[in-house]
Design a protein around this nucleic acid. Sequence first.
DNA 1: ATACCTGCAAAGTCTTTGCCTTAGG
DNA 2: CCTAAGGCAAAGACTTTGCAGGTAT
Lengths: 137, 137
Amino acid sequence: MDELLERCRLQGLRITDALQTILQTLFEADLPQSMQDLEAHPTLSKICDRATIFRTLQRLEGIGMLRRLNFSHTGAKFTLNTGDMHKEYLICKECGEVQELQMSCPVHALEKKIEKLTKYSAMTHELTFYGLCPRCA
Amino acid sequence: MDELLERCRLQGLRITDALQTILQTLFEADLPQSMQDLEAHPTLSKICDRATIFRTLQRLEGIGMLRRLNFSHTGAKFTLNTGDMHKEYLICKECGEVQELQMSCPVHALEKKIEKLTKYSAMTHELTFYGLCPRCA
DNA sequence: ATACCTGCAAAGTCTTTGCCTTAGG
DNA sequence: CCTAAGGCAAAGACTTTGCAGGTAT
């Protein structure tokens, strides 16, 4: 957590209550959070408003600390960017439940290949699985 | 194309001008189309309005004829669902250019495994690559 | 004839901005 | 101090819906 703040500081961000609380929230949440999740967060909702959350997320994404995930149906969600490693998710098409998948990235090597092949740079990818959870099936 | 219409008919959809033109457009377009792309389409824009496009896409997706792709930045796009096969795409983070990737699906087998492991059914996935195209880099 | 479709316009839903104030470094 | 960050309210950008009238089957 302190390390995260340090990274922000080095990138020139000011350490405000909003910033700290947003980082804290994302840090504690084991699943990606949407703007709305954050707006509804008991602590966060008290100390800052929508616009601040929005702009803070924007800044954090800007310095590469956040990964933005674009899930169908549920809209964008954010999660802390922890280096090379990243997780893939499984979403229920019906109720929107998000589940983290335990596996190493199956397309990492492929990504490099595409980078060479297409002359695109700064490659990243998003891999998301969708299905019906047992309850909704 | 006739086969597509036949599938619609069998599913109980009425063969209207809007339906035919939308299918035609998606059929001819080699890349996924967004609501806005379709609204701006010279032919389509003349014969029906936004709401009709929206509802027609909804119906087509409902009977499994469309695949909805949720790309970052650019919003949802649609492409005809051609059986088991599906394509993956590479998007430029800067200008939004969409490029089709020539490869067989690298996570098909994995999908089955996850299906068993998680008890989710009707599994699908979305795999999209993002990068900076040569011009934007 | 009768569901199903459509157009228009309006209501939603989120995301994003402008502008002036506050406060971190 | 000086500039980044925040609050509030309003503008945007799309997506979605209600309702009255049209049309495929």
